[in-house]
Computed example of a mutant assay.
Amino acid sequence: MSDAFDDLLAANEKYAATFSHSGLSGQAGRGLAVVTCMDSRVDPLGLLGLQAGDAKILRNAGARVTDDVLRTLVLAVYLLGVHRVLVMPHTDCRMSKSTDADVHEVIAAEHGVDTRSLDFKTVPDQAEALRHDMVRIKASPYLPDTLAVGGAVYDVRTGRLQPVEL
């Protein structure tokens, strides 16, 4: 591994010296899956009062329920003890400030890379995208009708959740 990761390997040595999670199973201890954004300001365990082993955390740009998120939720529900899902985008998200066309244009202009074959799933209306994604989970033929699905927007300025109803 290159020198670019030396800081991470050193931090891991410290972490491993006091590691205490070896007894955890792969099950979601609190029966929860959280679909959230990859934004580094979002600490899903901390902001929800969870600990390691409590929940399955699924992250991507914009906290979107993609085909891969649905695939992962099917596994989490049937194999890993999940019986409730929280979809949790956040305020000040880069994906809510642009259209896909804008993102393609910026990347092409600034980096010379043509990304037009990718769908970035930008979200001009965050509440509407959140409702759409919640419905997508509820409507999936692969997930049980009993699966509890909720949505909330995490405010990166206050640390508070703003629930969004279907």
Rank of each mutant, 00 (worst) to 15 (best):
residue 2 S to V: 03
residue 3 D to S: 14
residue 4 A to I: 07
residue 6 D to P: 11
residue 7 D to Y: 07
residue 8 L to W: 08
residue 9 L to D: 14
residue 11 A to S: 14
residue 14 K to M: 04
residue 14 K to L: 11
residue 16 A to E: 13
residue 17 A to S: 15
residue 18 T to S: 14
residue 19 F to T: 00
residue 22 S to Y: 14
residue 23 G to W: 10
residue 24 L to Y: 02
residue 26 G to C: 03
residue 27 Q to R: 11
residue 28 A to Y: 02
residue 28 A to L: 01
residue 29 G to T: 15
residue 30 R to Q: 15
residue 31 G to P: 02
residue 31 G to R: 02
residue 34 V to L: 02
residue 35 V to M: 03
residue 36 T to D: 02
residue 36 T to P: 00
residue 38 M to L: 15
residue 40 S to W: 01
residue 40 S to A: 14
residue 41 R to T: 00
residue 42 V to M: 10
residue 42 V to T: 11
residue 44 P to D: 09
residue 49 G to S: 06
residue 50 L to W: 05
residue 51 Q to K: 15
residue 52 A to S: 13
residue 53 G to I: 12
residue 53 G to K: 09
residue 54 D to K: 13
residue 56 K to T: 15
residue 59 R to F: 04
residue 61 A to K: 05
residue 61 A to Q: 09
residue 62 G to K: 04
residue 62 G to W: 02
residue 65 V to C: 11
residue 66 T to Q: 09
residue 71 R to I: 04
residue 72 T to Q: 12
residue 73 L to F: 12
residue 74 V to C: 06
residue 75 L to A: 12
residue 79 L to F: 00
residue 80 L to N: 11
residue 84 R to T: 11
residue 90 H to N: 12
residue 91 T to G: 14
residue 93 C to G: 07
residue 94 R to Y: 04
residue 98 S to K: 15
residue 98 S to P: 00
residue 99 T to P: 13
residue 100 D to R: 04
residue 102 D to I: 05
residue 103 V to E: 03
residue 104 H to D: 13
residue 106 V to D: 08
residue 106 V to G: 00
residue 107 I to H: 03
residue 108 A to K: 15
residue 111 H to A: 07
residue 111 H to S: 10
residue 123 V to F: 01
residue 124 P to A: 06
residue 127 A to C: 08
residue 130 L to H: 06
residue 133 D to A: 10
residue 135 V to C: 05
residue 136 R to D: 05
residue 136 R to Q: 08
residue 137 I to H: 09
residue 138 K to E: 12
residue 142 Y to M: 15
residue 143 L to K: 07
residue 145 D to A: 13
residue 146 T to A: 15
residue 149 V to M: 06
residue 150 G to P: 00
residue 152 A to Q: 01
residue 154 Y to V: 01
residue 156 V to Y: 07
residue 159 G to P: 13
residue 159 G to C: 10
residue 162 Q to N: 12
residue 165 E to Q: 12
residue 165 E to S: 13
residue 166 L to G: 12
